[in-house]
Amino acid sequence: MASPSRVSASTSQTAPRGGLPRFSQKHLLGIADLQPYEILDLLDRAEEMIPVSRQERKSLPTLSGKTQINLFFEPSTRTQSSFEIAGKRLGAQVVNMSVRTSSVTKGETLIDTAATLNAMRPDVLIVRHSAAGAVQLLSQKVGCSVVNAGDGAHEHPTQALLDALTIRRHKGRLDGLTIAICGDIANSRVARSNLLLLGALQIRTRVIAPRTLLPAGIENMATEVFTDMREGLRGADVVMMLRLQHERASGKMIPSVREYYRFYGLDAEKLAFAKPDAIVMHPGPMNRGVEIDPAIADGERSVITDQVEMGVAVRMAVLDALLPARNETAA
């Protein structure tokens, strides 16, 4: 049985990992800010956190006495509870704050809330906001560490890390895989963070979407771009589906949900083009029957619930990596 102190990174903060330095930044704002060795370090740390959640006594004293505030300007049950559980399993005091944004007070709320919360001296802020760059802006106004839990269509770094961890555990490796990301790439922070992470590790990526859901310049962000889902899935090791904001897209970016499902929904027939052992992923929450056939979502190739478990491990690893790093710089 792993002893708590062995799993805690705080005792081995400066120890080189295979000769490489470890992750030691103040904030986690995006995958774009990470070096490949930092990504791998966070994945390795997360790996060590998995047993903690599986044992009887699911806690470590690492963050005891620390205050973590989950500041969500956009509602998200699963991401918020994942961060909350991660913090609590490491012994932190976790406070949840949901801030309703009205169009009148939007920005004022952001800067003012940052100043107010900063005065309460938290150790880490977990922030989600509907505007790209908002979390970075907030990080400039506070003294503590900040984790981006999703900012507009920009980044969602812990999602990309948990996806990579899930893939690595199922495939035993990341090198040499072909990963297809399918759906609303244009509006997806999950797609961006995943493309950045996989790109940094030089892993082959494909994006699949109708032209209207592909952002400009996508050919510089993914290895290959497809508008035909069958072609795009051919020989893929991993199929990542994205949630379609169908209320917003319908009639504008796509004609209808049923047409979208016909051409871009993942069903058995299309999945057959991927490798026989290909895994199916989805960041949730799923629209069954919109982007994915329920039979596939709940089927044996689906690793969607594993992603949720890895989410807690990755977030524990991120919190553990950020907070001791802060103490060191302060000392």
Partner: peptide, 13 residues
């Protein structure tokens, strides 16, 4: 401006 940089920033072009 619409283009690669806007896409990277996650901003609408």
């Amino acid at each position: 401006n619409e283009g690669h940089f806007a896409s990277v920033l996650g901003l609408k072009g």
